[in-house]
Design a protein around this nucleic acid. Structure first.
Lengths: 356, 356
DNA sequence: ATTGATTATTCAAATCATTTGAGTTAATCC
DNA sequence: GGATTAACTCAAATGATTTGAATAATCAAT
């Protein structure tokens, strides 16, 4: 944008914008992008964020692996890596993360001086400081203040979050949710997660556990939503049929071949998804629901095309510009990229700082 | 608070606070409250909001009545009134509201000059501008921009919202949610509503329809939540038994007498409530869930005491200072007072203004 | 009773982001 | 080729806030 346009959008004087631009340019956060002529008048010098003006490091901690990504200011991945692990105790994880961080810094000259922070995705549930209770799959993390642990290890400010929240923010930075302020993101991880963005901000819940929609029991049957609709559920279903579905490529191949065992999982999964959509639409009234995570595009597209959306919903709006359900980012790195996106979001979004 | 204490909390200099206090006192928004001595040092002159420094007008529009309330800056009701109606078309409503507004102004000298705005509670569902679709019980409101209609009629800035959201904000202003930033409010209106407050702000949804939890179908049976858990449902249940339960006092009397027909409604209602709590806790992870609305205290207390809370929930926190479920404001005026509370919240809460 | 420590407050001057007003530059329109 | 339009810069003014020095009112120790 040019100075005058920025001034109009922000309700500032052009002079103020000039001053601020001078300061940001000085700091290397902006780059010039030539002059834009529209009709009469002096052509406006265009400015954009300098992609190399800042970097965010994203980490995903899982019981069997650690994933890392380095994002530049534009939100593009400069480096990604996955390391398989045998143990996932805090010491092992912290050492692995340190080494991944240094590897990332070596990939990109100048990143060290411009590192904005680290985003960390972990399985919940979270307590006041760290992980509490069971079900996370991570052992030995009970009494640990994860925030302090990671920020001390990396020497960076960190944001800890769950996979669905992170993926939702990534989608806003560069994806289907660009420009949206109120939307929901249904995330296929091991279970089924939900990221809620309201007014441009994540609704994390009191302890960061918002969005555990997979845990909701389906009354009548004795199961919960994620027992029908998750990576774990499709994996178990295929294992019972003597097939393997433990990675995204395998699932994509089965779907491609119209595998009948995968199909027999898809039918009840689609029903469960319809119910999840009903809950999200009625409780949250989003502009749209985005489907993403550790699934192949083809299966996500199948869900988008075949989920029977409830007609008795406040989201059933005629003439809406947005689809009620759409596909977002998919693949193995979704949550990891989202972890770094949390940092970019914190950096780029205006917010009221809570002093302490 | 005193100047120095305010300065510490806000991370401002005491001088800045002094300047601001001088300005606010000049405008009549503050009152002095004597001097507070704590140990050594000069006693601090105490300041508080002047209750007469501002007023908010709240209106609740229903198919059969209009309710109004005038709140002072402290959140206390200075005037409340209920007017029964035969018709609820826009003309009738606007005229009634105008006359109620002038009546309210006559109750409180100086209120006119210090009126901050009006909050309006209406049954949804809301579209881009006004009420859309059916189910609201209001006829003839289809193509009306409610915001403009009311703000033109009263000459005030207005906030339109649903009953549950309004009640949730009232609870924060003066009730069980004081000091909480992330909580949910289950509201008994005609149906069952949900107000979500996240980080101190209402999650209204893209079109203001967030919180229609009553519309969620209970899989298995063919009904939705509010067919088991709402004013309408208890009324119909009692009518079938040949009894009347169409106002709060009647319900309170039946509960007092341990009426067996009311009891036979309470059992499945409690089950439905347990399911609603499960959904809210897992999707939203609130600090607490507050139960309120158009029900007698005794029945709300019964729900709080007898609802089987799911143990498999992220909200099942040992050593939590807050109960998972508690009673909030109840009675006929809850949503009306909440409507006015929306205005006080907008006035008193720091937020980023979105220029236009 | 006196002195010193502690805390709250005011006064005056300095700072800094932003606005205002006047002038400059570079394009299109006629 | 002059009029018009829009973007931008320079210099001075504005206004909220901070800084630093001084004053006021209390408690605690002597």
């Amino acid at each position: 944008m040019g100075r005058a346009e920025i001034a109009r959008v922000l309700s500032l004087s052009t002079q103020a914008v000039s001053n601020i631009i001078a300061e940001l340019s000085e700091d290397g956060l902006l780059i010039e992008r030539g002059h834009l002529t529209i009709g009469r008048g002096m052509p406006a010098k265009q400015y954009a964020l300098n992609p190399k003006g800042g970097y965010a490091f994203g980490i995903e901690v899982r019981p069997d692996a650690v994933l890392a990504a380095l994002l530049n200011m534009e939100g593009r991945a400069v480096m990604t890596k996955r390391v398989a692990l045998k143990k996932a105790d805090p010491d092992t994880i912290v050492n692995e993360i340190k080494s991944l961080y240094h590897e990332a810094l070596r990939c990109e000259a100048g990143a060290h001086a411009r590192m904005l922070g680290a985003g960390i995705v972990m399985p919940g549930p979270f307590g006041a400081t760290g992980i509490v209770g069971h079900g996370s799959g991570l052992e030995g993390w009970g009494d640990i203040d994860t925030n302090t642990l990671f920020s001390d290890a990396l020497g960076l400010p960190v944001e800890v979050s769950n996979d669905a929240n992170a993926a939702a923010m990534a989608e806003r930075l560069s994806g289907a949710a660009q420009g949206l302020s109120t939307y929901a993101y249904l995330y296929f991880g091991a279970g089924l997660g939900l990221g809620l963005v309201s007014g441009g901000n994540l609704a994390r819940g009191a302890f960061g556990n918002a969005g555990e929609i997979g845990h909701i029991p389906v009354p009548g049957c004795r199961d919960n939503l994620e027992s029908a609709l998750s990576r774990l559920s499709v994996q178990e279903h295929l294992t019972r049929a003597g097939k393997r579905g433990d990675d995204i490529e395998a699932l994509a191949a089965l779907f491609e071949n119209e595998d009948k065992d995968l199909k027999s999982w898809l039918v009840p999964a689609t029903e469960a998804l319809a119910y999840a959509v009903t809950i999200v639409e009625n409780v949250f009234d989003p502009q749209t629901i985005i489907l993403g995570g550790a699934m192949p595009d083809s299966i996500l597209d199948h869900f988008v095309a075949n989920t029977p959306l409830p007609s008795q919903s406040v989201s059933n709006r005629p003439n809406s510009a947005l689809p009620r359900l759409q596909r977002g980012a998919s693949g193995r790195m979704t949550a990891t990229l989202g972890a770094a996106a949390l940092v970019l979001h914190r950096t780029l979004s205006p917010h009221i700082a809570h002093a302490h």
